[in-house]
Design a protein around this nucleic acid. Structure first.
Lengths: 74, 74
DNA sequence: CGTGTAAGGAATTCTGACACG
DNA sequence: CGTGTAAGGAATTCTGACACG
């Protein structure tokens, strides 16, 4: 489940989120995909879980910065 | 494990086989990846297991046609 | 039979920016 | 702040074919 093998297009399909949103979470240091030599992002199923949790909490009014604090404090 | 989400480049890395070999197994009806709208192959971890078994048995002298019979008879 | 490769095209992804608010 | 989008380039994948044997 921690194998980073899934590209962003599939993550987008599985989560229902846009690629823009998914990349933004990375920009905010909430998810950490690996990269292929060419620079293509690779996610794990665990990452997908995290991404869905992030989106869920944001729907509840949390900001990315708050979420980062929450993750650091866990 | 049966989620078809992995592209051929990653399968190639994980198995150590060439993309040519992996596509050939599909041509021989031994593996059945899904396709994205654009036609890109998507494999599951289970598919990767199967691919490695195919390669292993071929190293032991089996032909693809024989392997197909073996899989059908299981 | 199984696999390498060059060829040309198509799908996918990447980044930085502008926009809205 | 979080996300949509158009823009241009780059990485990845696809197919059909020729080659060897």
């Amino acid at each position: 489940m921690k194998n980073k093998v899934i590209q962003i297009g599939v993550v987008s399909e599985l989560t229902g989120l846009s690629e823009r949103q998914i990349r933004y979470y990375e920009d905010r240091k909430l998810v950490f995909p690996e990269r292929s030599r060419g620079g293509v992002r690779k996610y794990s199923f665990e990452d997908i879980q995290i991404i869905m949790e992030i989106h869920s909490k944001m729907s509840n009014g949390f900001h990315t910065l708050e979420l980062k604090r929450m993750m650091a404090g866990s």
